[in-house]
């Protein structure tokens, strides 16, 4: 039998409650259950996490770096979305 290609999974870990899951790396596993167990054995050996997500790598749709200009630059000029855009007299206090 030809060597089966064992699928690639992306691993996300919540290091403690109150924080969101963060991408930590990837691994190979034949299915989701083994992927979850492998993530536990590989990425939480030192108490790094309280919750794990595994996602098939092929399920991720990524933005194209070539679209960087179109995707991300138009926001740069929308400075009115930031609090520092607005002037409030100092005597009003923190707002």
């Amino acid at each position: 039998m030809a060597a089966a290609e064992i699928p690639l999974w992306e691993v996300f870990i919540r290091s403690r409650n109150g924080l969101s899951h963060k991408h930590v790396g990837s691994l190979h596993a034949p299915d989701a259950t083994l992927a979850l167990q492998a993530a536990r054995d590989l990425y939480t050996r030192r108490g790094e996490g309280l919750s794990i997500w595994v996602v098939p790598s092929h399920a991720i749709t990524a933005s194209d770096p070539a679209d960087k200009g179109m995707m991300f630059e138009p926001t740069a000029s929308k400075i009115y979305r930031h609090p520092t855009f607005y002037e409030v007299p100092e005597e009003v206090g923190h707002m």
Partner: peptide, 11 residues
């Protein structure tokens, strides 16, 4: 048999 399983057996 698999490197991922290597981790599990050692654990």
């Amino acid at each position: 048999p698999m490197m991922e399983e290597e981790m599990a057996l050692a654990n």
